[in-house]
């Protein structure tokens, strides 16, 4: 199936794995695909995201929040209880290593591949269908993004949490196809 993917689309799939491991997650989700498109090379899909008000840093923060990582807001709330999260984190990391508190699960340090989530696989299949529907011979990042919008998984949830108008974003992407 990947032979029909454009170079940027393949790069996005590869980068999604890097984002997932960097964040300490043990699966590549459609949210990591979304992050890869947003942070990747300039493309119609990346521009559509920017136009829809998505910035990469905000998206990453939202994904971390959704995965239950302890973020800035948690640190603030804990300090209101007299708990210094940075102090807890540094004590834990002194014994168990960097990122131990946030990853929880032992980190895969030896370059192993991590699997895709069910939603991420569904998104890649939907990307193919979107390309067929739009009469495109190749599958680009815009088709992956359309797949993310259609799948209604974690990527879609992250966009919604950031206040993105999914219908408007879809129209922008489809208009780009026509042009």
């Amino acid at each position: 199936m990947f032979e029909r993917f454009t170079r940027p689309a393949r790069d996005a799939v590869t980068a999604a794995q890097t984002h997932a491991t960097d964040l300490g997650h043990d699966r590549i989700g459609d949210d990591h695909l979304l992050l890869a498109i947003s942070s990747g090379a300039d493309s119609p899909a990346a521009r559509a995201l920017t136009e829809a008000g998505v910035d990469t840093a905000g998206l990453r923060a939202e994904i971390e929040r959704a995965h239950g990582r302890l973020g800035e807001e948690d640190a603030e709330a804990l300090s209101s209880l007299g708990i210094d999260l940075d102090a807890v984190r540094s004590r834990v990391e002194a014994v168990f290593g960097d990122g131990a508190l946030d990853a929880g699960k032992p980190r895969r340090r030896f370059g192993g591949h991590i699997p895709f989530t069910k939603d991420a696989k569904k998104v890649l299949e939907l990307a193919l269908r979107e390309a067929i529907r739009l009469d495109d011979r190749t599958i680009g990042t815009e088709h992956i993004l359309l797949g993310i919008l259609r799948a209604g998984g974690e990527g879609h949830a992250a966009l919604r949490a950031l206040g993105v108008d999914a219908a408007a974003l879809r129209r922008t992407l489809e208009r780009g196809e026509a042009a």
């Binding site: 302890l70 948690d74 709330a77 209101s80 209880l81 168990f96 131990a100 699960k105």
Partner: peptide, 23 residues
Amino acid sequence: TGLRAALALRRLADSLERLQVAN
């Protein structure tokens, strides 16, 4: 404010528990 603090505390407890179970 109070509920947000309870949520943060639960997340911290979950993280510590997972880490120590693995340990």
